[in-house]
Design a protein around this nucleic acid. Structure first.
Lengths: 110, 110
DNA sequence: CTTTCTAATCGTAATATTACGATGATAAAA
DNA sequence: TTTTATCATCGTAATATTACGATTAGAAAG
């Protein structure tokens, strides 16, 4: 128990859920906004922007990386993070699709 | 420990994270798709559509309701669930905004 | 080499999530 | 009233998440 029944769902739903999960914590949303704001890549000043410890930020960065939304390039001592364009667009598309599928029919009950 | 530092984040980030969290499980994505597909409201046949127990589905429905994305109206013995139009559009807007803020600048490094 | 800086990882504690069976509540049907 | 059907909630077990301090690994600086 306690584990998601992965095999029970479609690939699309699993993928969308993965992207959504990456956005499912305010710290990760904040990190993404920092990366989006400065179109140039940002290293670990993210830690200074947020009231979280370095290890916690690093953990959130890892999750964003595992979801595919960001990439990290080692640049000497520092590590440069940025949005992964392809994954970002893919996530955007999946989100657009599910949200748009409502406005298509329009009428609802309840 | 173990608890999110809610006070550390902006209202927008917290709200977006809440909506994202609702989409962060494939079962909930699947439930939303069922509700989206049939533009008429659906009751608990959702349980039959998914390979999950009734109590598990009910729990997921509760989370979707708490996130605000769906509403549930009691209709005799059955309960009729459907998308909450306002919240849906709000979530759509927040998602659109954060995703669109990338394509605006375009160029990235890494 | 040693120190320093940056960032990942480890270890751990608190809390949250996921899933299910069992039980409870309410409304329709008998 | 008793039964049946529908759905929520409780209780519980397994697992995952969140957060932090401490440690580790690697590169640059001294």
């Amino acid at each position: 128990m306690g584990t998601t029944k992965t095999e029970a769902f479609t690939e699309a739903d699993l993928t969308l859920a993965t992207y959504a999960k990456a956005l499912a914590h305010p710290a990760r949303v904040a990190i993404l906004r920092i990366l989006l704001e400065r179109n140039s890549c940002i290293c670990g000043d993210i830690v200074e922007e947020l009231p979280l410890s370095q290890s916690t930020v690093s953990q959130h960065l890892k999750e964003l990386k595992e979801a595919g939304l960001i990439k990290g390039d080692i640049d000497g001592k520092k590590v440069c993070y940025c949005i992964d364009a392809e994954a970002w667009k893919h996530a955007q598309l999946l989100m657009q699709q599910i949200f748009a599928s409502y406005t298509l029919c329009g009428t609802s009950c309840c």
